[in-house]
Design a protein around this nucleic acid. Structure first.
Lengths: 237, 237
DNA sequence: CGGCTACTTGAGTATTCTCAAATTGTGTGG
DNA sequence: CCACACAATTTGAGAATACTCAAGTAGCCG
């Protein structure tokens, strides 16, 4: 959308442990088998809602989105944030309708990959099959890794881990890893980390007091990444 | 493949949200492309450990196993329990080594499905490709569903959900859904539910006092499933 | 500029944890 | 088959973390 996205494009594929999902697939080759279309999104707009017919996967090109898990009894939780290069919709494969809500946190653009054509393309491009499967596996690992964090860390370390995760992802995309803007509200962060927004707010203030970060509304500056990694004694076990 | 599986097969596809993974694949057809071998396990034995070379997926035929996520700084958490029909190893696809530990909770048997052959078989059996992909997606949904539970429910409802989940799975396998034996320790349950074992123990006692269940060490009898579903007021939002 | 939403901060509460001890079960060797 | 050692489970009491409720501040949109 501006100079920033140009930076990201120029940076090219970095090699870290975080979801680069289908990043290495030759998009041009893919286009020969799958009709890829662009879709613009406004801030707050739903990419899809739970229950809507599942017919495509998406790749985030620009912007940041959140995925929200819903339960029949009204509970809900943010289960992740997706940025450039991330795959969206994998959780709904095999279902009639999408399994969760996906909402744009800012204006952006995604590429729509119709699913049945993707499956057939996998038969013609073995590489694509392996990659799609790996992408799903990567998503499982990503979720498990956060399950571990939420299950074993206290509030302070959860927030610290969240910031470090964002930093790493921004870094991989060619942005600054120590200075970035949060695209999501405190409430979204809290929901994702299984905390209350007041707690997130307090923790951010505390981390700032300790000189580990600078917070100014949604602007974050990481001053001491190692300090963040250590953070609090945590509720080990 | 005994009377139990016959029962399970007779039950047909129950429409619950739980993994039946590769259950519908024609195993005989699969054998023509993939050398499936049996592997017996003793209680406490590791099926694999994090870091060991990844070379196969597994299908549980008999017994119950737990999967454990590990972090570099020594934290660990049980991320799931696998029983007959469940797929194991999907999280490690795309990696050199396995991503987690898997431990048998009792004597049992798994089928080993070498992975590279599985991938090639997918090219020859499109049905298998779709099913493997669906299985991974199902696993993502399963994890997300528990993330939601752990993130939004109090201790009491977590334990209740856990029991109801087990009951449903046993039911689908043709066993009694209201009377079963826990294969895992309180500590394993606690780890999975992000609680302490003392808390699990207390909650079980409380649920029994309310007449919702009967607990006798690892033997569980569900007296009032609906009551369990309601349980406590929960920490909604 | 007004109204709204997002965020921050404080005070008291509540749930879950920690530490500790007692109890029950299990497996093994005698 | 019994006794003992060890592991798993239960239960209690006090502590700690995160929550709830509440008030106040600060950006943002129209």
């Amino acid at each position: 959308m501006n100079t920033v996205s140009a930076q990201a494009a120029a940076a090219g594929p970095a090699a870290l442990h975080e979801p680069r999902y289908l990043g290495d697939v030759d998009i041009e080759q893919l286009r020969q088998h799958v009709p890829v279309t662009r879709r613009r999104l406004e801030a707050g707009q739903h990419l899809y809602r739970a229950g809507q017919p599942f017919n495509a996967l998406f790749l985030v090109n620009v912007g940041c989105l959140k995925t929200c898990e819903l339960s029949d009894d009204g509970r809900e939780q943010v289960t992740g944030f997706r940025m450039r290069g991330d795959l969206i919709g994998a959780e709904s494969i095999g279902l009639r309708g999408y399994a969760c809500d996906v909402v744009a946190l800012e204006a952006g653009e995604v590429w729509e990959l119709p699913y049945p054509p993707m499956l057939s393309a996998c038969l013609r491009i073995p590489e694509l099959q392996a990659r799609l499967t790996s992408a799903l596996a990567e998503e499982i690992r990503h979720d498990r890794s956060w399950m571990l964090a939420l299950g074993t860390l206290g509030a302070e370390r959860r927030v610290a881990s969240f910031l470090l995760d964002l930093a790493a992802r921004y870094g991989r995309l060619g942005f600054s890893a120590c200075h970035f803007i949060l695209r999501m509200s405190r409430a979204d962060i809290a929901s994702f980390l299984a905390l209350k927004h007041e707690t997130v707010s307090r923790v951010l203030s505390r981390l700032q007091e300790r000189g580990l970060i600078l917070v100014e509304r949604r602007e974050i500056r990481i001053l001491d990444a190692d300090g963040l990694r250590e953070a609090e004694p945590a509720t080990l076990h």
